[in-house]
């Protein structure tokens, strides 16, 4: 059987309709033979019934006219015809069954092959799925990375735009005009680090880029800045005299020195000095000291931080910018 199947499946088999050809070669029992078989049974039953029911004279009469013998011959003929039909039918069934078995074997073999193919396909699909998952993870990572970079870029662009806008407005004299440069620097730093710049620093952790940029822009823009060293107390005393009385209180409240704790004040000594100078300068004439800047500097050195007595422009501006930026960062965190 297996050899037959292999032969059938083998590509060398000349005909593609091998099974059909086999089936066609099987001699089939004709409808006539089948009808004779079934109807012959009924005819035989009729004759047997007739012979059984005949009475004595009937039997005698049938024997005399020879019909009884004819009936017997008819019965025998029916039996033989029936046996022949059955024999042919059995042959047809057996041959058909053989072909059916071959067909079933082919089907079974195909099913086994199909099962193996499905299994292999499944494994291949599993590998592909794993690779796909890996790819998805990698792509997700890259997308997240790109999104993160994009976000940082957006923040950076926003910070740049805000810085440009603030510096442009300041350099055009639209903001903090008529104020001494020390105050301008303090307020400018406060404004810059209350904008998207502080978000940039918070998100990226880069606390250097914009601080340096701001310091350089201030130095590059403001032509009033002194070229030499100066005493911090003297600078503040001089500056306080340049501020109008109405502005002093406003500026002092903007710098908010009084709301800081003692611990926090240690981080903003220069802002403390500026704020304290302005507060002392806003006192009544009777209470107001002659040199509020010197006093503020002394208070700072005694109670908060031992800052140097003298400084230059870059150092002072850098200190103010750093302290303001750190303070804003602390608040937003």
């Amino acid at each position: 059987m297996i050899n037959t199947i292999d032969k059938i499946i083998n590509k060398d088999t000349s005909s593609t309709n091998y099974l059909s050809e086999l089936q066609q070669r099987i001699p089939t029992v004709s409808d006539k033979a089948l009808i004779n078989l079934v109807n012959g049974i009924q005819v035989s039953k009729d004759i047997i019934r007739y012979r059984k029911n005949r009475g004595f004279f009937g039997k005698l009469f049938d024997k005399l006219d020879g019909s009884d013998n004819k009936r017997r011959i008819l019965l025998d003929g029916n039996i033989i015809a029936g046996q022949e039909a059955l024999h042919n039918w059995v042959l047809e069934l057996t041959d058909s069954l053989n072909i059916s078995q071959v067909a079933l074997e082919v089907t079974q073999k195909s099913l086994l092959e199909a099962r193996n193919a499905i299994r292999n396909q499944k494994q291949s699909l599993q590998i592909q799925e794993d690779k796909l998952n890996q790819l998805v993870t990698e792509i997700n990572f890259r997308i997240n990375n790109i999104e993160s970079r994009l976000h940082q870029l957006e923040i950076r662009v926003a910070a740049n735009e805000d810085l440009d806008r603030i510096i442009t407005a300041w350099s055009a004299g639209k903001t903090y005009n008529n104020l001494p440069w020390v105050i301008q620097v303090a307020l400018l730093a406060k404004e810059v680090f209350s904008s998207s710049v502080i978000i940039y620093e918070l998100e990226t952790g880069d606390t250097q880029r914009f601080r340096e940029l701001l310091v350089n822009k201030i130095i590059a823009t403001d032509k009033q800045l002194p070229n030499s060293f100066f005493g911090i107390g003297d600078l503040l005393d001089y500056s306080s005299t340049l501020i109008k009385e109405d502005d002093k209180e406003l500026i002092a409240s903007l710098l908010e020195i009084r709301s800081f704790s003692q611990q926090q004040l240690t981080d903003i000594p220069h802002l403390f000095i500026i704020g304290t100078t302005l507060e002392l300068a806003t006192l009544s004439e009777t209470a107001k000291p002659e040199k509020p800047g010197q006093i503020a500097a002394s208070l700072c050195r005694n109670q908060i931080h031992p800052i140097s007595r003298t400084s230059d422009t870059r150092e002072f501006i850098t200190a103010v910018v750093e302290e303001t930026a750190n303070d804003c960062l602390r608040i937003i965190q």
């Binding site: 059938i8 499946i9 099974l19 059909s20 089936q23 072909i99 082919v106």
Partner: peptide, 19 residues
């Protein structure tokens, strides 16, 4: 006989696909 023909027909189609 019809079922036999159908069986053979489907088997031959299967064989054709295999080839």
């Amino acid at each position: 006989r019809q079922s036999q023909i159908s069986l053979i027909d489907s088997t031959e189609k299967l064989l054709m696909m295999l080839r």
